[in-house]
Design a protein around this nucleic acid. Structure first.
Lengths: 227, 227
DNA sequence: CCAAAAGTGTTTTCCGTACACCCATGC
DNA sequence: GCATGGGTGTACGGAAAACACTTTTGG
């Protein structure tokens, strides 16, 4: 049986066509730890397990709009880095007719996020190395998101979305180290960041407890930049 | 209004939910020219224009299965490189309730492809620099696919899917040049290909018209390999 | 004065790029 | 013997990686 391109137009709304869900992997870095936001399921299936926030794409809604909506629902923030990740299917093996999950990932500054405080399925942050038991095949999605994020770090300035407007180079380095999962050399790191010209020194300083006060930097651009 | 994860499960089949289409950008290299397979639309909208092959995702069908089905329909080949590209929406601005297009791209050896011979919307190859007027926003999709392919070429062996089992280094270089859109240095190219150990020399040779016969090579692996 | 974090250069290694001539065959 | 495509090595430059000590502050 052959599908005709023309058949894209008038939907036979009768047959159960696959549903479209949108999931958003929301990352943050707290205190040297890369964390993802998960919600606890209060309904079946997988009741009580944790899952990536998401919901059905509504009629007429665009994919980014749906992803942004979920992001705002869960964290209250909106103007952050958000990128489409991958489209999975059969994540959910219960929906009759199948389902398609379009996944996104977002990077939020932990201090700006205000988690929704709901009675059931409350959201919570989990370190990527201390994940709870997850619903559907959400481990796969998280791993894929992490991999993508690690790659993006190498050739884009996406880290801007994980930090406040002003930050120290040590804070920035800790963000990189949390995501990459390994220590970086301080001198090489600073040399590289500065040579890429994605950050600029300000003339402010900030004392972090004991020790010499650190210079504060800012990102030259708070829009995504690819080098 | 908030979507609950639980609502992923029982679909309210009443509302017109967005449709899911699967498109497959099929690339080949012929004679130093990177080409994409397009089909001519015989129905509305965009009647008479050319478009990327695709169709609706059928109930219960997986995304790769749908993409593979389209690929086989159009070219007769199946065991080639196939990768998910991106998921667009609003490509089609006519479907009520909106539509989502999950796009893939495939790489086929031109000599193995046997194009479907249909009365209406016949498929045909078009050089990426001589594209006809396209339906929907298919230019965007093709450009995105090209960009992705160019990147993949740098750190994977995907070219194996564009060549026969045995090939000369010059043929391989022409494939790279067609995709990248620029000339490469012969010595550097060979050095790199051999040092990556993705190809191996055979002891066969092949005369290409006049000139010294060329050694034939094969890919060490005909599965995708990332370096 | 000591603990704690910030800040700073040089050397080596590796990879990408530039570049020109000889070799084997068909006609 | 000449036209055609196949095949080969070296040198340079830039980026990444390795590596250790001094500076400034708080307590």
């Amino acid at each position: 049986m052959k599908l005709k391109p023309a058949s894209r137009v008038p939907p036979p709304a009768s047959a159960t066509s696959p549903l479209v869900a949108v999931l958003v992997v929301i990352f943050t870095v707290v205190d040297g730890d890369l964390q993802a936001l998960l919600i606890r399921r209060s309904g079946d299936p997988y009741r009580g397990l944790w899952a990536i926030p998401g919901g059905l794409l509504q009629s007429g809604e665009s994919l980014v709009a749906a992803a942004t909506r979920k992001l705002v629902d869960e964290t209250g923030v909106q103007d952050v880095y958000l990128e489409q990740l991958y489209t999975f299917n059969h994540l959910d093996d219960v929906t009759p007719g199948g389902s398609v999950a379009v996944t996104y990932f977002a990077l939020v500054d932990h201090d700006r996020a205000r988690l929704a405080d709901r009675a059931d399925w409350r959201p919570a942050w989990f370190g990527m190395h201390r994940l709870p038991k997850l619903a559907f095949r959400n481990e796969e999605v998280l791993q894929y998101a992490l991999e993508r994020l690690r790659n993006k770090l190498k050739y884009t300035n996406v880290a801007y979305s994980l930090l406040p407007a002003r930050f120290t180079l040590s804070q920035l380095q800790r963000v990189y180290e949390s995501i990459l999962g390994r220590r970086l050399d301080k001198r090489n790191f600073r040399k590289r960041m500065l040579s890429l010209e994605i950050i600029e020194a300000t003339d402010e300083r900030q004392a972090e407890g004991a020790g010499r006060p650190a210079r504060l930097y800012r990102f030259s651009s708070r829009e995504p930049v690819v080098f």
